[in-house]
Design a protein around this nucleic acid. Structure first.
Lengths: 217, 217, 217, 217
DNA sequence: AATGAATGAGGTTTCATTCAT
DNA sequence: TATGAATGAAACCTCATTCAT
């Protein structure tokens, strides 16, 4: 017992969510391998066979957790970026990026021991790396698009690869700050977003203006 | 008998290195949990009890691997940053940072499936997270110091926290690019370093000059 | 969906046959233990509880399959042996035996992956051995009776045990040829029956005439 | 210390035999599926992991049992058939066949709950059918060769297929009698062999002489 | 009548780890 | 020193079987 008593014979959809909740909790707390299906089932207030029946193998289950959380994150960010805004103002790329970051840090801050932890684990465990790589790629791609739009707006040209690299750097920096945020529970996600913007945007802005840095000859 | 054919009765130090080599190989290939002490011992050409006698438990062994590789990385970076240079020119913070990044990407590029993989794994596995966090902290601290020096040189003041955040962002971005580099074997590590500088330094530079970005009110 | 549309609310007898069909199919394909009640139910286009309600436990179900198929076999053979014939000619023991064999091989050939497979399995699995032994005994007994009649017709005497042994040998040889037939789908069951007769009857005939073989002293 | 208490640390070869002994015992008594690795290990006086280390998976273990027993049987029969004899007398095909049968029934009688039971089980269980089929084929082939030699000695010709069929029939009949023997513990294996010869040889002999049986037209 | 939901029980397998030689 | 032999413990997974709707 963990979730509300929620006694017996619930419809499948409900049970699945309960299981996923429990799984996220346990995976986060113990790590993928140390987590046992027994504990997950117990936490979900159900017997193991049901877990297998509904969500499949332990690996499947972890992936399901990962996907659910990733989806939520992506939805949050997407909504924030493309969201309500249709005034000229809200369409400025920097504003869009900022809204995205704010949503991102907000989400991470709100799921301090769910998403971030799963994500960290998945990156290292061979069977899940692919899943994560895909997610990262989607994020980076979205960022790259934003940056590209900004570039175009500034009337300049930057190679695809360069945009990609910048996007990955930005994603990495954000992840890093997300971790930092996870470890500093008192910090305000919104401030973190602003900080990130200050670093990222000013640099990007410079680049877009054609400034470059080169090692001394 | 000077250079032993590596047969038997090797001095302890040598054996330990062989074991660590094998362990790094196996941990990288299989992941911490999927790796078996059996395979590690076999790869090291030695029996399991020896592994336990010399390096202790599996967890100990992984940590030993992690430490050895981390040490190598840190040494490489440290040497590059503080290294030979004592002309005024080499002391410029940006040059130092760049040399550090170059060393970092060089190392990562040269240990594509050793360091990076261990590192990724360690981040997720609960028992090793601390070890990694410590390492990251050291890196970030070093970067923060560099940035701080640059700030001072520019005659400005930035709060500790801000420096920290910037440092973490930079470290994260670098890690992210390191991954990207690992996945793009044809890319030149040196170019990656330069790219990173272009993003990081220009932003940092702006910040140091007092420029800031703020969301539209 | 597997058997005909098999919609809803069928009379019990029909449902049972559908289940048995499915069960025979699955048991044959997977083997008793590897077969799962889930798959059987699915193949029968019905839910598991119905299977339990109608045919009982898994063991019961297997026995039911076995019995149904055995019954069919016995009916086919019996009909062929004792069947229509009442002319003097058809009453000759050899002709009777031959008709029986022909029916036997015909049945086996026509149920290549039903009967034979079940039968083979049942022989090995402890809980079903008895069932099979009984069936074999009935077959052997029938054969023994036939042989006995032939003996009597020849005006000779053979001990009960000897008749029994001959009958079991004949049954075994037939089973063996049945397997051989199952593995040689191009062979004609009728020819197999004739072959069997050539081996069996000539030997039996000799025996009945009092010929015997003895090891060299 | 005269009779080593057989306690601990036995060499691998010894332990393997102990395990196989135990496995044969348990598989025979319970049947493949009902047998548990736990019980086998316990019977062998060793812990489960050793069984897995030495003999592999449960399936492997069963096959190992099967092979060991089959090898013993084949060796016994082969030795008896081709064995010592080189006088003209012992070379007569019928004598050879008889010696083979005697060895066969002798072996079966002596391993009443080892070989026969394993064999029966293996025939039905899908994963082992192949192994058994191969063994049967070897037996049948050997018999066919013997029959062929007898045919040649009689100056006649019989098609390959016919020899094969006869051989399979003979093997099947022998198996059947072996079962019968297993169920009649008081019967003498040697008499069973003679009985089998009386049936088989007289029939074969007739066939070799050109006699045939045909259904009435 | 019919089924989705649910579970107790047990089996195979794999490890990290340690004796005893 | 070095290792073959040995094991306790636990994890994953599957299944036959039954409620409650």
């Amino acid at each position: 017992m963990s979730t509300p008593p929620a006694f017996k014979r619930l419809p499948r959809a409900v049970r699945e969510q309960q299981m996923l909740d429990a799984a996220v909790r346990v995976f986060s707390a113990r790590g993928y391998h140390a987590a046992s299906m027994d504990e997950i089932a117990e936490q979900a207030g159900i017997s193991k066979p049901m877990v297998y029946a509904y969500l499949g193998t332990k690996e499947d289950l972890f992936i399901a957790c990962l996907r659910r959380e990733a989806l939520r994150l992506i939805e949050a960010v997407t909504a924030a970026v493309g969201g309500a805004g249709d005034t000229a103002d809200t369409d400025r790329p920097d504003e869009q990026l900022w809204r995205g970051l704010r949503a991102f840090f907000g989400f991470v801050g709100a799921h301090r021991d769910g998403w971030t932890v799963l994500y960290r684990q998945a990156r290292g465990q061979p069977p899940f790396a692919g899943e994560v790589a895909e997610l990262r790629a989607r994020m980076a791609e979205a960022v790259a698009v934003l940056l590209g739009r900004a570039v175009a707006a500034a009337g300049r040209r930057v190679s695809e690869v360069d945009l990609d690299v910048m996007a990955y750097a930005l994603v990495g920096a954000s992840e890093s700050l997300a971790d930092w945020l996870t470890d500093h529970p008192d910090e305000d996600p919104e401030r973190a977003a602003t900080r990130m913007m200050n670093i990222a945007w000013l640099g990007a802005d410079q680049l877009l203006r054609g400034a470059t840095w080169h090692p001394a000859p």
